[in-house]
Design a protein around this nucleic acid. Structure first.
Lengths: 337, 337
DNA sequence: GCGAGGATTGTAACCGATTACAACCAAGCG
DNA sequence: CGCTTGGTTGTAATCGGTTACAATCCTCGC
């Protein structure tokens, strides 16, 4: 079952069948209809490999993430894949596991499969790997670390705005001793969040107390450990902002273990709004970073760059996180004693 | 940069280069070495599309799951992909979203991309779709619903053993009023778990009380709602077994909301052992179903079937879940009053 | 009635591998 | 010494599309 069979049945050449399928150049409506009926009758669908070989376009996008088991990513992957499939594309997902060697393999996989574009949704990527893709004219889009001036599209997260909302919320509840648990400092995205938060606190005239800044690992255990350390302080914080939701969940775990109530004794704010956060007890107040929006922009960036017509320049999208107020934050408790 | 360039540099024909790369037929060691050096020097890697077109094998496996945002799946996807990449394969992940229409699209995608095998890790799949793949001789492996007699490999989960462990554990703690929150009854895997559990209870001489059997939806909100209903009973259960961990998490949420303590007042057992379960407060006692083991067997099944030599028959693997005792279960509390 | 010119369609080269088959070569044997 | 045989290597067809270019067909205006 190949294009020749369709051509024979529709009494046209293979070129006409191909044109009908791709809508590339004009085909007379009557002819097109005959071809479509032949396709229908034979249950024909094109061989993607032959298509890719002939045209040089594979209709595959690469999606590089750090780790699919990190709850931030599944929704991103799903949304991206959804859009891709709706547009006739396939997606190859690759996990870097935060390792440079694995990242290199990921890029190699993309090259071998001749992807039409790569969405790099992790901040850790060597410039020589970027160059590898760039030199082959493969469209790319990055999360936060792209450089549109160099032809690489970027999705810019407005951390400052999101973090400001969180700080404003906490401050308006009367808190002044505000702790922050950051992500691992070797992660670019964690550093960015940390800087945005420190700047925001400073703007409020807070945050000079370095002992209230702890480092986690963007996972539950790190958040728990960091919170334990914060609880040993003479002057405990009354509110904690975490670099991501998992960290916040860990922090709440530590608080519960110490018999402290959230939010009555201590308020906690997360970041990301992973699905489970809405269902926790207490439901987590957090800064939502929409994965659907990120996936949408990423796909658009690649898809536009792929249209050969316009030599579309790299674009930059801005995404504004959104504070979701739930039950893990409350007004500053009255001092006892 | 194609195979011809390599052939020229190594002063051999393209056939010899191809043979060296694939190790298909014998190539003189000296020649092979020359070819390898040429490949190295040129930084050559084969065009996968051309390879697939010529050989009929794409070195791509399809992985059909119901929903990547269901925490059960990411680890499965990751493990499967890991094995695939290590063996030079690529993976196409497709979410059915539990919808027949989407499932049909998933299968179509697999056919168009000419996958070398499909792992169907969701229980909902029409037989005509299976036939579509089967008639094209595409190796398949299913989770629980495969039929080795019909040439389809199967990974059999020994639910009975896993559930027995959980029931035994709960009974040994002194509980007799044991509730069960099942998954949605239109999900085959949920029905299987339910049957295994009811049978296990019956074996212990329990489970005759139908009011202790509730239906959830395998998500947190369903578990919470089901638990709420159980709490309205005259005689409340003292232990609850949930069909999956999310359901258990929801149930615990409902219990907390009612001021009940877990495990002091009520014990809760989950199923799956998703990553977060170990970090909850209390850490969840659950029956671990290893996703890594499932992925491993699934890959092996496809990989073996793919070797054209032996006309390998379909295989059946058995996986035994394992009870992980944490802090959400405790001895039956003493009756007060 | 005829040539121009646009719309349609066909011919065939090409994408980059794989692989059946043929050709070649050297060693071994009678 | 000629032939067989097995190991290596090359030739060229093939996979199933895409697409540049050529050919053909109409329709119009003069």
């Amino acid at each position: 079952m190949n294009i020749q069979a369709v051509a024979d049945r529709a009494r046209v050449s293979t070129a006409t069948v191909s044109r009908t399928i791709n809508g590339s150049s004009k085909v007379a409506p009557k002819t097109a209809e005959r071809v479509r009926r032949a396709i229908e009758a034979l249950g024909y669908y094109p061989n993607t490999n032959a298509r890719a070989l002939g045209s040089g376009r594979s209709r595959i996008y690469g999606l590089i993430i750090s780790d699919i088991t990190n709850p931030f990513f599944p929704e991103l992957v799903k949304s991206f894949e959804d859009m891709a499939v709706r547009n006739g594309y396939e997606v190859i997902v690759a996990n870097t596991g935060y390792s440079p060697e694995r990242t290199e393999i990921c890029v190699q996989r993309m090259l071998e499969r001749k992807v039409d574009g790569v969405a790099v949704m992790t901040s850790e990527m060597d410039s020589h790997l970027i160059e590898r893709l760039h030199s082959r004219q493969i469209p790319m889009v990055f999360l936060d670390t792209g450089d549109p001036a160099n032809g690489i599209s970027n999705i810019l997260i407005d951390y400052t705005a999101g973090v400001d909302d969180a700080v404003e919320h906490i401050v308006s509840l009367g808190h002044t001793r505000i702790a922050f648990i950051s992500g691992p400092m070797d992660l670019a995205s964690a550093r960015t969040r940390r800087q945005a938060l420190l700047a925001s606190l400073k703007r409020k005239g807070l945050g000079s107390n370095k002992s209230l800044i702890e480092v986690g690992n963007h996972r539950i255990d790190g958040g728990r450990a960091a919170m334990e350390r914060l609880l040993t302080l003479e002057e405990r914080p009354t509110a904690v902002i975490a670099s991501n939701d998992l960290t916040a969940i860990g922090a709440i775990g530590a608080l519960h273990r110490h018999g402290l109530r959230v939010p009555e004794d201590i308020s906690v704010v997360g970041f990301d709004d992973i699905e489970i956060s809405a269902f926790l007890h207490p439901a987590l107040t957090t800064v939502r970073l929409s994965r659907a929006a990120i996936a949408d922009r990423a796909f658009q960036a690649l898809h536009r760059a792929g249209k050969r017509e316009a030599n579309t320049p790299a674009v930059e999208y801005k995404i504004r996180p959104e504070l979701i107020i739930r039950n893990s934050t409350a007004p500053l408790p009255k001092r006892r004693g």
